[in-house]
């Protein structure tokens, strides 16, 4: 039971990290109708900058600030130089161009930081662990990720449904030319939304840096998960992204933790372990296939 609680928390932590990434991706898709495969690259930029600044100065605050800034700046530049030309194109062109961006970003980080992965320590202030229940210690840093995820979810909700900017974003999603005709500078609105998405991805990168290895190509493995999340949740819906992210985080973590034990009741240990490993990796894709088979537009179609 204690193990179960711990694993649920791990699942929530993965889920909230995925939410930081998928919120930006789903906003960009919902508002601009753009598929951005290079979203994982901003995550990677955030992680690299944070790890480097942390190594050089030792200050987590500075690392966080610079990482967020550089991720948002990258997003802004990419939007202005490349993606702006692609809003009116079909999804296939967008997939190709952003695939090109992935190659570019991965190789650039390899040229700057080399092939060896970087490692970043957990900032000292959050290094310890707390006892969430008597006898169940849990790393503080992972709790912090969950807390920040909750804060961002709340912040996004306020931003989108209770501010003037959010109103414009929602309006831009439903009718671009109408909003432009009403005197809103839709170009800058799009750039702003894109930069916001990149910033959230960079934030996820900073949070992930002490947990995973920081290496070139780290964006793609998580990007696929992120796409699974937004497809399950319903593309364009931030609420769907939150639910989808938590679902994927929990299913993936709990599957990896408990499938081997479950299958051992049925098979001999080595067979059970090998089947469980592949089933656990497949679990989220199975989940997605089942959900799409019954709800072809996701749980909360926007």
């Amino acid at each position: 039971m204690l193990l179960f609680i711990e694993q649920v928390l791990n699942g929530l932590q993965l889920g909230f990290m995925l939410f930081l990434l998928s919120a930006g991706l789903t906003l960009v898709f919902g508002v601009m109708n753009l598929i951005n495969l290079a979203h994982g690259s901003f995550y990677m930029v955030g992680a690299y900058v944070a790890a480097t600044v942390m190594l050089a100065t030792g200050s987590f605050t500075l690392a966080l600030l610079l990482a967020l800034l550089s991720a948002a700046l990258c997003g802004l530049l990419v939007e202005i130089i490349v993606l702006r030309h692609l809003y009116q194109r079909d999804h296939l062109d967008q997939v190709l161009a952003t695939f090109g961006l992935i190659l570019f970003f991965n190789e650039t980080t390899r040229m700057i930081w080399g092939r060896q992965p970087l490692f970043m320590d957990v900032p000292e202030a959050f290094a310890g662990s707390v006892e969430i229940l008597p006898g169940v210690p849990y790393p503080l840093y992972r709790l912090l990720i969950i807390g920040i995820g909750l804060l961002v979810a709340g912040g996004l909700y306020l931003l989108i449904s209770h501010t003037r900017l959010g109103m414009r974003i929602r309006a831009g999603a439903s009718n671009r030319s109408m909003v432009a005709a009403l005197g809103v500078n839709i170009r800058w609105l799009y750039s702003l939304v894109f930069a916001l998405g990149a910033l959230l991805a960079g934030f996820a990168g900073v949070m992930a840096a002490p947990v995973f290895a920081v290496e070139s190509g780290m964006g793609e493995s998580i990007l696929i998960l992120t796409f699974v999340v937004i497809v399950i949740g319903g593309i364009g819906s931030v609420k769907g992204a939150l639910l989808g992210a938590l679902l994927v985080g929990l299913v993936d973590t709990l599957g990896r933790a408990f499938l081997p034990d479950l299958l051992q009741w049925l098979f001999a240990t080595p067979t059970a372990n090998s089947i469980a490993a592949s089933l656990a990796s497949m679990a989220i894709y199975l989940l997605m296939a089942v959900i799409l088979a019954f709800k072809p537009r996701g749980l909360f179609p926007a």
Binding site: L96, F99, G100, L101, I102, L103, F104, F105, T108, M111
Partner: peptide
């Protein structure tokens, strides 16, 4: 590094 921009 070069192939990416060519694609774009």
């Amino acid at each position: 590094f070069f192939l990416g921009p060519v694609l774009i």
